[in-house]
């Protein structure tokens, strides 16, 4: 009996060793591909049309970009709900600066990012220095910054169409062989965040803070500094996403970002990062964001009303969570077998 387990265990260990650490990525990719296949069966012309992908690439970054830095925050076992308002705040600062200067100056973008940095730092300080739970603190700042945006704009939108074609526009939302520049920005940022998370000391600290906060403190990691840095980074990235969104629409809308809040959180969760902290991947979030956009496209092109989108989103989120829960249970069972095998091999 033990022998049988050992044989199974050895095979399992050998196969999974090569893939271990990439399990979630493999599953999320499989979900993505099966969705693609389903939509292919339903509506082949839409799925084989290159413009479908251009259109996904032009909207997906608004969900994906804030979701990337949000992934780091969720890995550290915190949450940020205020980023949707920070997106609007950053974009508003940029739009107002351009209106004041009369040109699409990079200075406007810089000031917008700084506004995001400030808002992120405020979140970090509220959470770390005043000890307010992040869920509550960021709901507060979510209302605060949305309120600021609404009061300043009095609810009116700011048209920015006259700046189309300026260098800043081209760099941020131009088209390169049809590919939206902001999609390339999303890929670039995903690579940067992947490197930080997996190859840099800061990324290691993020994992440790989420996995065992007291332990992290005991080995001398400055937990507050890690968290405040995370919120600051998230603020900047949210502002960037807001600016990019505004430029793509060529209009600043005071409600900017509202729909992305839950979508970005959903992208992180569908991507396999549990809210319990300590684990999670950037790749998963990226594909998670694509999946959500893909569903939207698939539902619309399959000829039903747009009301179905939310329903299908909900179903996919629940399926993803259920699959992760199941995976964790399998993992636990496997851990027990592996523990036994290690035990035996060390006894020899």
């Amino acid at each position: 009996m033990v022998n049988m387990y050992r044989n199974i265990g050895n095979t399992v260990t050998r196969v999974t060793k090569a893939l271990s650490g990439y399990k979630l990525q493999i599953i999320i990719t499989a979900i993505f591909l099966s969705l693609w296949f389903i939509f292919y069966i339903i509506n082949p012309p839409a799925i084989t049309n290159i413009f479908t992908y251009y259109s996904i690439a032009s909207v997906a970054p608004f969900t994906i970009i804030p979701a990337l830095s949000l992934t780091l925050i969720i890995i550290a076992r915190e949450i940020d709900l205020s980023f949707s308002s920070i997106m609007a705040l950053g974009a508003l600062v940029t739009a107002l600066t351009w209106k004041a200067l009369g040109e699409a100056s990079p200075l406007g973008v810089l000031l917008g990012l700084l506004a995001g940095l400030g808002a992120g730092l405020l979140n970090g300080v509220l959470i770390c220095k005043l000890g307010i739970p992040s869920l509550i603190a960021t709901i507060g700042t979510m209302f605060l910054w949305r309120g600021v945006v609404l009061v300043v704009t009095q609810g009116f939108s700011i048209p920015l169409g006259e700046y189309r074609g300026s260098p800043v526009f081209n760099v941020l939302v131009g088209r390169i062989y049809g590919i939206p520049a902001h999609f390339l920005w999303a890929i670039g940022l995903a690579i940067v965040f992947w490197v930080i998370l997996n190859r840099h000391k800061f990324g290691a600290y993020i994992y440790y803070v989420g996995d065992n906060r007291i332990g992290a403190q005991m080995v001398g990691i400055n937990v507050h500094r890690v968290l405040i840095s995370l919120y600051a980074i998230h603020g900047v990235i949210a502002a960037f996403a807001g600016i990019v969104d505004t430029l793509e629409m060529a209009t600043f809308w005071p409600t900017l970002g509202d729909i992305y809040m839950l979508k970005s959180v959903a992208a992180v969760v569908v991507g396999g990062t549990p809210v319990t902290g300590g684990v999670g991947t950037i790749y998963g979030t990226f594909i998670g964001g694509l999946i959500l956009e893909f569903i939207e496209m698939g539902v619309l092109t399959s000829g039903v009303t747009g009301f179905w989108i939310r329903l299908v989103h909900g179903v996919v989120i629940i399926i993803a969570l259920a699959a992760q829960g199941m995976l964790r249970r399998i993992e636990l069972a496997r851990a027990r077998i592996i523990k036994m095998l290690i035990e035996e091999s060390e006894e020899k």
Partner: peptide, 25 residues
Amino acid sequence: ILCENHTIWRNVFMGRELTNRLGFL
């Protein structure tokens, strides 16, 4: 004082990672 989701080598060096000057592991 361990991060159980992470590998043995990461745990051994937890908080005292060997890095180059830019902080890369």
